[in-house]
């Protein structure tokens, strides 16, 4: 029985497995959500902002929340694979290993989007700002893809180390600075009603960054996970 599944089938198998396991345990999502709520509340009380300045700082607070919650999710997502040797089980499958990477990216993105969908209305209520702006939602989509794309690759690398919880943010944050800066700038532009000529450069940077880093991850994942 020497058959090999297609790239797409292998990717979907990883996504399906991750979603089934998470919707049963809810360990990762609950940790990300509780953490996000705490960050939003702390910022809300700490800043005590005037209504006029809330729009200006909202982009920064939002992306700080997403970045920290995302790191928590990425660490947990790979720890589940490592703890019982499941990462070896994945790597033993006769599939293109980048299918495993894309499967993990899609499931991590799904968890990130779930957190964002819950955080946005709560943030809107607490800060009195309407965040349901199509432009802002596009930035959140692009920024999340960039963050999770790089984060999944680095989490696969960090998971081999004993100090993985500490190692991931140390590796990840310097590399995703362009994503976070562009996302904050573009989000802020949409929230404050800046002209498109100001918003387009960071938006374009996000798109280019995503393409470059997803291509790099596609080419290097095999080497990253192998000893």
């Amino acid at each position: 029985m020497q058959l090999r599944p297609s790239f797409l089938k292998a990717t979907l198998a990883v996504v399906r497995k991750d979603l089934s396991a998470e919707f049963r345990s809810r360990e990762l999502l609950s940790a990300m959500l509780v953490f996000s709520m705490l960050v939003i509340l702390i910022f809300n009380f700490a800043l005590e902002l005037e209504p006029a300045t809330r729009k200006e700082v909202s982009a920064g607070v939002l992306w700080t929340t997403f970045a920290f919650a995302g790191t928590l999710g990425l660490n947990r997502s790979m720890a589940v694979e490592k703890d019982r040797g499941c990462l070896d089980g994945l790597l033993l499958a006769p599939v293109d290993r980048s299918a495993i990477y894309f499967g993990k990216v899609i499931s991590n993105l799904a968890f990130m989007f779930i957190v964002e969908i819950i955080v946005l209305p709560i943030y809107s209520m607490l800060y009195g700002i309407n965040l349901f702006n199509p432009g802002l939602l596009l930035v959140i989509l692009l920024g999340s893809i960039g963050y999770i794309g790089v984060g999944t690759l680095l989490a696969s690398m960090a998971v081999q180390a004993r100090t993985r919880e500490v190692l991931l943010p140390i590796l990840l944050f310097p590399i995703v600075i362009p994503v976070l800066l562009s996302a904050v700038k573009a989000s802020s532009g949409f929230l404050t009603g800046a002209p498109m000529t100001e918003i387009m450069p960071p938006l374009n940077l996000l798109i280019v960054y995503n393409l470059i880093f997803l291509a790099i991850a596609f080419m290097t994942f095999d080497q990253v996970v192998e000893e």
Binding site: R4, A10, R16, K17, A21
Partner: peptide, 25 residues
């Protein structure tokens, strides 16, 4: 190996189903 390479939050059947998909059985 001495580690089971199985997902604790999936059933026995779901674990095998996942690996069956990964091997294109």
């Amino acid at each position: 190996s001495h580690l089971p390479l199985l997902y604790a939050d999936l059933t026995a059947e779901e674990n095998l189903d996942f690996y069956a998909r990964m091997y294109g059985i």
